[in-house]
Simulated scan of single mutants.
Amino acid sequence: MSTPLMQAQGLIKLFPVGKTWVPGSGQMLRAVDGVDIAVEQGETLGLVGESGSGKSTLGRCLTRLYDLSGGTLTFEGQDISALSRRQLRPFRRRVQMIFQDPASSLNPRRRVREILAEPLAVHNIRTPRDLPGRLAELMDLVGLPAVYLNRYPHEFSGGQRQRIGIARALAMEPDLIVADEPVSALDVSAQAQIVNLFADLRERLSLTYVFIAHDLGVVRQVSTRVAIMYLGSIVETGATDLVFETPAHPYTEALLSAIPVPAVGPAVRRRRIILQGEIPNAVKPPKGCKFVTRCPIAQERCRADRPALRPLADGRQVACHFPREETP
């Protein structure tokens, strides 16, 4: 088998909770808790979960915007877990991030020309002579006229600002782009345009995506593979159609039951699963399965032993003692 473009093993990210004067004496929130995940060349991996599940934190760990608290992260087989800022410079060019809110991720005091030119200058990618042509090329890639290079971010709509954010990421000619809920702040029509743009750029530039979202409809449209997160851990991963049509983990099944279904002809009804119970405290998660307090099929084993992510016969991986396809 070929080496994954990026692979995380036992990835952990901790944040201190409360105020303490003695390092290491306070409580720690496990925002990312032992995540194992691989991103293959050319795929779009959809990362899904409720708000607070750790999706955005995991995305920032994969791009090394956050230092890791534990585990290993490799890019094309090279361990980048503990590299310094200087050592990460070549990696920064090849892995870029697109943020959720384009209004706050673009410098309001700079024109678009300066925003796009800065990473090229920092990494010395283009000469001053080639710079105007490259900036016009980037604007064309995201469907904006080159004349907009002289405008400020506040002069654009939300969808146009997100296109500029995409252009900034493309400026570095990356292999992998981590998109952190890139359409959640946009209206429906702008969402559709940006999603189509992502698909077009993937084909034209042979890009690989990690697409973070809570909109399951968007994830199904853009992703080739999907990973479901709950309370900092991956609970199920596999081919998108397989996971959406026959979810193995009870949490995945509950999430998918919330997708609106259009009624064509006679009303189409889907059994809506309403989860009961309390969401566990991420500082002190349950001893066993993290989902045990809300799981409709929880048993005594679930309260005692935490399930590991294990493969199923159909190629998926699931962290459950009693996955749906094996439930008696």
Score class of each variant (00 low, 15 high):
Val222Glu: 00
Thr72Arg: 09
Asp36Gly: 01
Ser184His: 05
Pro247Ile: 04
Met172Asn: 12
Ser157Phe: 00
Gly70Phe: 05
Arg126Pro: 11
Glu300Cys: 00
Phe291Trp: 01
Leu205Thr: 10
His123Tyr: 11
Val226Leu: 04
Val268Gln: 15
Pro280Glu: 06
Val292Gly: 04
Glu245Met: 11
Asn124Ala: 15
Gln7Thr: 08
Ala185His: 07
Gly18Ala: 10
Ser25Tyr: 01
Pro145Gln: 13
Ala308Gln: 15
Gln317Val: 08
Arg168Thr: 03
Tyr230Cys: 07
Lys290His: 14
Tyr152Ser: 09
Ser25Cys: 09
Ile12Arg: 14
Pro119Asn: 08
Ile273Asn: 12
Leu106Lys: 01
Arg225Val: 02
Leu73Gly: 06
Tyr152Thr: 08
Gly52Glu: 10
Leu144Pro: 12
Leu312Ile: 04
Pro296Cys: 08
Glu203Asn: 15
Pro328Val: 01
Leu120Asn: 07
Ala190Lys: 13
Phe91Pro: 07
Gly18Phe: 02
Glu253Ser: 10
Arg134Trp: 12
His249Met: 08
Gln276Ile: 11
Ala121Ser: 14
Leu11Lys: 05
Pro153Met: 06
Thr224Trp: 05
Thr252Gln: 02
Leu309Asp: 04
Val264Glu: 13
Thr246Gly: 11
Phe322Lys: 11
Phe15Trp: 08
Val142Asp: 04
Arg151Asp: 09
Gln299Arg: 15
Arg111Ser: 08
Ala82Ser: 14
Thr327Lys: 15
Arg271Ala: 15
Arg303Ile: 08
Glu40Lys: 13
Val318Asn: 02
Asn281Gln: 08
Asp36Gln: 01
Ile212Cys: 04
Cys295Asn: 13
Ala308Ile: 13
Ile234Tyr: 05
Ala121Pro: 12
Val112Glu: 07
Ala171Arg: 00
Glu118Met: 12
Leu5Arg: 08
His123Glu: 01
Ala146His: 14
Ser104Tyr: 09
Ala171Gln: 08
Ala136Cys: 02
Trp21Thr: 14
Arg269Glu: 15
Asp187Phe: 01
Asp140Tyr: 10
Arg271Cys: 12
Thr20His: 14
Val195Met: 10
Ile297Gln: 13
Ala282Glu: 03
Ile234Gln: 05
Gly34Lys: 06
Arg168Leu: 06
His214Ala: 10
Ser69Pro: 03
Val112Thr: 08
Ser69Ala: 02
Gly77Arg: 01
Arg30Gly: 04
Arg110Pro: 01
Pro145Asp: 12
Glu203Cys: 11
Val112Ile: 00
Pro262Arg: 01
Ser157Val: 06
Gln7Phe: 06
Arg110Leu: 12
Thr208Gly: 06
Pro323Cys: 11
Phe99Lys: 03
Glu203Pro: 13
His249Asn: 07
Pro323Lys: 09
Leu309Ala: 00
Leu312Asp: 04
Val222Pro: 03
Gly18Asn: 03
Thr246Ala: 14
Arg163Glu: 07
Pro145His: 11
Ile234Asp: 02
Phe156Tyr: 04
Ser2Leu: 15
Leu62Val: 09
Pro16Ile: 09
Gln299Ser: 14
Ile279Asn: 00
Met1Ser: 15
Asp187Leu: 05
Ile80Pro: 03
Val292Lys: 02
Val32Trp: 00
